[in-house]
Computed example of a mutant assay.
Amino acid sequence: MDIEVRHLRVICAIAEAGSLTRAAASLCMTQPGLSAQLRRIEAMLGGPIFDRGHAGAEPTALGELVLSRARAILPSVDGLIADTARAVRCGTASGQVRLGSVGAPLLAHLVAAAKDLLVGSEVTARCQYSPLPLLDDLAAGRLEAAILGDNPGNELPPRDGVVLHPIVTEPVFALLPSNHSMACCEEVGLEELLKDDWVMPPPDSDRTWEYWTSVFAQAGCQPYVPYEAEGRQLIEIVRTGLAISLCQPTFIEVPGVAVRPLKGNPLWYRHVLGWRSDGPVATHSDEIARRIREGYLVTCANSPAYMRWRQRNPDPRRPLE
């Protein structure tokens, strides 16, 4: 992982607040989540940035160096963001529709709808693991629309000029090796799975890890997570039988893995469509949202485990119809 502008903002926010608790509140994060992110930043920079104690957070010598550079860099970055956003709003980049998405099965439907409805526009797209940088890009005018996501109790914060429209709230499923003892079950208990080794994506600012661990705590224990991975690497660790994980219910089973619902549906995830209120997508937002919903239902049909779950749960909390 490379140092990003958002990491510099985190460091400055902690220094300005004088404590992680106050900084977490200003950043709309939890204190444990901010602490975890700070540890990752410090690991990237090679040493502690703050001395943390009862009196608060005081910059170390390394921290003072980082802060001096960050405070010099951020005004220029903010100026660049403001200038480019202004240029886009004034039409210097007219005809370009920039889309973004987290790891979700909805991006292709968003791109297809934009290409059909915004005729003559150049449509581009990029993906990112966490929704918060994408939301920041929407607010700054660097994206016209994006597929975002959040969890119960950790909903996306509002941003000026950005409309957030829920598409669907779906359960989170278990991802198991196909030879796992519970792979033959129609649904699996979270308490039993917590006895296995797990592979999880690295924690990030989207707070998904925090949400999961809070639900694990309610189930009685935390999983042992010897592996951190995402994407293809995570799937391969599961496929080889080294660990289990969680996944979206629309995940298409590949040889060697099994997707199964969790008993009692303890975990949920919400897909959200966001767009600039003053951008080209706003005019067609209702139709774009409708097409994404239709595309989501088609995607569901390719996941047998999810289709069976939907038949057993005819009225879950999903704003689709």
Rank of each mutant, 00 (worst) to 15 (best):
Pro202Met: 12
Thr250Asp: 09
Gln233Asp: 10
Gly231Tyr: 08
Ala145Gln: 03
Gln128Thr: 01
Ser181Trp: 06
Ala72Asn: 08
Glu210Thr: 08
Ala55Asn: 04
Glu294Thr: 05
Ser94Leu: 13
Asn151Met: 12
Leu190Tyr: 02
Gly149Arg: 13
Leu74Tyr: 08
Arg270Pro: 01
Asp150Gly: 01
Tyr129Leu: 12
Ala243Val: 00
Leu273Ser: 02
Asp137Lys: 07
Gly95Ile: 07
Arg290Ser: 14
Gly256Asn: 00
Pro171Asp: 06
Thr240Val: 00
Arg239Thr: 00
Pro157Arg: 15
Asn154Thr: 05
Ala305Asn: 02
Pro202Arg: 15
Ala114Asn: 07
Leu106Pro: 09
Ile288Asn: 02
Gln31Glu: 15
Pro157Ile: 09
Glu210Trp: 04
Phe251Val: 09
Glu170Pro: 02
Glu228Asn: 12
Pro223Met: 03
Arg40Ser: 06
Val259Ser: 08
Ile11Gly: 05
Glu187Val: 02
Arg232Ala: 15
Val199Phe: 02
Pro131Val: 03
Glu58Thr: 09
Tyr296Arg: 08
Pro304Met: 14
Pro255Ala: 05
Val111His: 05
Cys12Glu: 15
Glu228Ile: 07
Lys115His: 13
Val123His: 09
Val298Arg: 15
Ala93Tyr: 11
Ser101His: 03
Leu107Met: 13
Asn265Val: 05
Gly103Gln: 13
Leu175Trp: 04
Tyr129Glu: 14
Pro249Ile: 03
Val97Phe: 10
His165Phe: 02
Val77Tyr: 14
Leu107Arg: 05
Ala93Glu: 12
Arg126Asn: 08
Leu156Gln: 03
Ile167Asp: 02
Gly95Met: 08
Ala70Asp: 10
Val225Glu: 00
Cys12Pro: 02
Pro105Glu: 14
Gly189Ser: 14
Ala104Glu: 08
Ser68Cys: 06
Pro105Thr: 12
Leu34Pro: 09
Ser245Glu: 00
Leu273Pro: 01
Arg293Tyr: 03
Val225Trp: 03
Ala36Val: 05
Glu187Leu: 04
Leu132Ile: 07
Gly149Tyr: 06
Met200Gln: 12
Glu287Gln: 14
Ile73Leu: 15
Ala219Phe: 12
Val199Cys: 09
Ala17Met: 05
Asp206Gly: 01
Trp275Ala: 06
Ala85Cys: 08
Asp136Ser: 06
Tyr224Phe: 11
Ala217Ile: 02
Leu134Cys: 03
Ser26Val: 12
Pro32Lys: 11
Asn302Asp: 10
Arg270Gln: 11
Thr124Tyr: 12
Ala258Trp: 00
Glu191His: 13
Thr21Gln: 10
Glu253Ala: 14
Arg142Trp: 05
Met44Ser: 15
Gly33Gln: 05
Pro261His: 12
Asp2Tyr: 07
Tyr224Cys: 10
Arg22Ile: 05
His54Gly: 01
Ala55Arg: 07
Val298Pro: 01
